[in-house]
Design a protein around this nucleic acid. Sequence first.
RNA 1: GCUGAUGUAGCUCAGUCGGUAGAGCACUUCCUUGGUAAGGAAGAGGUCAUCGGUUCAAGUCCGAUCAUCAGCUCCA
Length: 648
Amino acid sequence: MIAITLPDGTIRSFPSGSTGLDIALSIGRKLAQDALALKVDGKAVDLGMPLTADAAIEILTFDSPEGKNVFWHSASHIMAQAVEELFPGSRFGAGPAIDQGFYYDIASPHRFREPDLRQIEERMLEIGRRDITITREEMPRDAAIEFFSTVRQDPYKVEILEDTLKQVDTVSLYHQDKFTDLCIGPHLTSTSKLKAVLLTNISSSFWRGDSSRENMQRIYGIAFPSEKLLKEYAARIEEAKRRDHRKLGAELELFMLTPEVGSGLPIWLPKGAIIRNELESFLKEEQRKRGYLPVYTPHIGNIELYKRSGHYPYYSDSQFPPLTYHDEDGSQEQYLLKPMNCPHHHLIYSNRIRSYRDLPIRLTEFGTVYRHEQSGELNGLVRARGFTQDDSHIYCRPDQLVDEICNAIDLTQYVFSTLGFSSVQTRLSMHDPANQAKYGGTPEVWEQAEKDVKEAADRMGIDYFIGIGEASFYGPKIDFIVRDALDRKWQLGTVQVDYVMPERFDLSYVGSDGQKHRPVVIHRAPFGSMERFIGVLIEHTAGNFPLWLAPVQAIVLPIAEDIHDYAKSVHQAMLAAGIRTEIDIRSEKVGKKIRDAEVGKIPCMIVVGQKEQENGEVSLRRHRIGDAGRFSLNGMIEQLQKEITGRT
RNA sequence: GCUGAUGUAGCUCAGUCGGUAGAGCACUUCCUUGGUAAGGAAGAGGUCAUCGGUUCAAGUCCGAUCAUCAGCUCCA
């Protein structure tokens, strides 16, 4: 007998050789039905694996991320089997489970098209109905190479065995009917668990992510153990589409993109410009309190400036080509649309001699930069070719560095919390020591910089994870990452330490010893890019902006034409109070006016009729909440003003 | 940049077998004057993304280009 510890702490004994399924059955019929795999002492294994020693176990079902992972991984194998049956000659690359489903990279003489997906889905469900047992087999690596070379004739699996797995002696194969895949597992015990599947799209990928290798066709999908779960998934996708900032941006007239101006060059419409303006004012106000000095710099700069900073050689392929100016005497000058603001700020710093007493100096600018992102990368506001950074550079003494990083983190956190972003991930982006050539500066400098970043992050008590190889070429960063409505991750704010630029630009200050010293630079941008931030904000709020940001804060809705004069006076009073207010004097019923205002996501609807007019009152209706009651005009204005200035 | 898909009125979308375009919403005008999510009628609105080809005839078939979307790759 062996002692099995269950997740709730109870210990039960089972005959040696019992499987996960046996244990699940002993606990309950439902659990046995839902069981997908087993976790033994923290390691996921097949449900059918016999247990021969005492262990702590957990039955994995579709409710847990690990259970989903097993389910989707098996679904990708089932898809491969379906593809193999339908399109003989297909060879299989990598087919993992991902955050939301799975994919398989396939090399096939057949070019997959949309209707094929429906056919493959059908076949997958049919394979599910066949109730094929999935079995694991372990064999020496050599035998597996032999197997995949001759029986399966799959060169991709052979390559994985010969390359990625060359240190491994024994590998595992999973068989289901005639289909066999090289896989570490675990997997479902039978194909019959698959009850619902949706293949979502076809795209291409490079074999092993290497653009010099062959293209493969990648089929993405998601699968569920019940129809009901698939329906729920489809509903979530619909909701995400409704929140898409590109769709809402057009509907709410916030911004536009047109090839007549250029791909990836957003234009702010009046309503979007209000939001951006409010956000900029908010940050400017906050920065004024924190000792920042506003500056302005031009949109283009001499190419020599960026060669000196190191940006040009590192990123020349993602910049717009230089503008070349030929002089009469034959000499030429080249200018770049500025890809970065920092070089300009460094020149401002070195425009005069700085004393140690002057530091820290915090230069700040909403600086528009231009980067020629690959066409396939462009995505509304969140990935644009022209965008504005809320860019500041803090020049400080080494002894001030950690404090200044903390100040920058504090500001960033304040911005995020004011805007209601609660689930922000923080990444300490460190350099990859194995790839030193990618970075400027010496290893000693990097060590110091990363130590300082960590110290600041710890002092601020932020919950971070470390991203090796995510640093910029001049220093480590603290990156603030949020997810959009489609669950894609976007980096917004950033705080970066830089010991490299001060060298390149020969920045200095005079210390108390009368000698020249090197300052350290912090690059920081709480919003990151105004475009991206607002794009994510649109999706985050679904276009229901807080009152202080709403492009139209209130709309006056007179009930009938004989109230128009009073309605107009209310409108005027609100405009005079600085509240962005419109008035709806169409000859529509109030129900219609309210509906249009609700659809337009206007936070406050001011309904006025005979009753309000008699007492100099207004009725307030809040967006998505409903009737808020009757107030005196001035009382309501005061209340709204308080809400606006409080940015709540 | 690569692979695939898409592009018809301001928006959402029909448009069969190739025979010169249609709905709903929005807009304008008129009627209606109302109490918390859609009152009624009429009107206007189109180089069917662009360019080229096939055809007696192209929104429809073919090719190229541009843009957008999904993914890959890249990312300061």
